[in-house]
């Protein structure tokens, strides 16, 4: 392809994008991409939280009192051999008490009331896959010599179920907004096709190839997508930083993503998506409206 031809496509696409775009359509494209980006940010944060939590999820298997060291070693081996177990650590009675004291902090005095150490020996078990925590815990609880297991029953499942629900809902909403963007870009391009019907007719008559006719419209779609994405990306970046500042001030224990890189990466992804959606809309709609 000649350089002059490429230049022609870019110039034509840019010119008709400027001529035919309205504040409303550009606003709608930007708003749709903004909602898409916001959804992605919420999902990214939820994922971040759940990963932090998942890293902390452990099964604690309490052992019956009065086991001989050989018995404890046998149980350890059995746990280790259980499918889905990543790591096993022994927590002795005393170690357990010390940790509990640490967790209770200023209320540790209550333990002195109890007097004798009430805790049994235990194993801390880390699992490979948080989804299977309940399953692994059930297996461990059936091992002879294990008194019982504790893994925050119910909470893990609820967290994961919520994540999945948000993910599915997000995908549905995202699909709707993608469709909206494609439709709006397509409609703007339809206006161009109509306003340039005569030019297109002449191009066909003098023997321009279909792709030659189509390229400026692809460029126009990409320009619209890019500009819309740029606007929404800027708003998203600024808005997210504000939101982070607000949340960390209000509830510092919520672990939100504060590093700028993932957010910047999201904005770049948004730009690429805008361009891609614009190109797809341009290609599809022009093919529909250009009857050769």
């Amino acid at each position: 392809m000649r350089l002059a031809t490429v230049w022609y496509f870019l110039a034509e696409g840019w010119r008709s994008a400027r001529r035919n775009v309205s504040l409303i359509s550009l606003g709608t494209i930007a708003a749709s991409l903004f909602v898409l980006g916001a959804l992605a940010l919420i999902l990214m944060n939820l994922n971040h939280v759940s990963q932090l939590l998942q890293a902390r999820i452990e099964i604690r298997a309490f052992l019956e009192d009065g086991l001989l060291p050989e018995g404890v070693a046998a149980i350890r081996a059995q746990i280790q051999a259980t499918d889905g177990v990543a790591q096993v650590t022994f927590v002795s009675k005393d170690e357990g008490l010390r940790r509990l004291r640490g967790q209770l902090g200023e209320h540790a005095g209550i333990l002195d009331v109890v007097g004798e150490n009430p805790l049994p020996d235990a194993f801390d078990v880390r699992v490979e896959d948080a989804d299977r925590t309940a399953q692994v815990a059930a297996r461990i609880s059936r091992i002879p010599g294990v008194l019982g297991v504790n893994y925050g029953q119910g909470f893990t499942e609820k967290l994961l179920a919520t994540m999945r629900l948000v993910g599915v809902a997000g995908a549905v909403v995202a699909a709707l907004f993608v469709a909206a963007v494609v439709f709006i870009v397509g409609n703007t391009i339809r206006l161009t096709v109509i306003s340039r019907a005569r030019e297109i007719e002449v191009m066909k008559l003098v023997g321009a190839t279909d792709w030659f006719i189509r390229w400026p419209f692809l460029v126009e779609g990409m320009v619209l997508g890019l500009v819309g994405a740029a606007i929404s990306g800027l708003l998203l970046f600024a808005g997210y930083n504000l939101a982070v500042r607000y949340i960390t001030g209000l509830a510092p224990f919520i672990p939100v993503i504060t590093a700028p890189e993932p957010v910047a990466a999201l904005c770049v992804a948004l730009l690429l998506m805008g361009v891609l959606m614009g190109a797809v809309a341009g290609g599809v709609f022009v093919k529909r409206y250009l009857r050769v």
Partner: peptide, 13 residues
């Protein structure tokens, strides 16, 4: 169909 543009370069109206 891809040859049509080249036909139209040779046959003008």
């Amino acid at each position: 169909p891809s040859e049509v543009p080249y036909l139209r370069r040779a046959v003008r109206m």
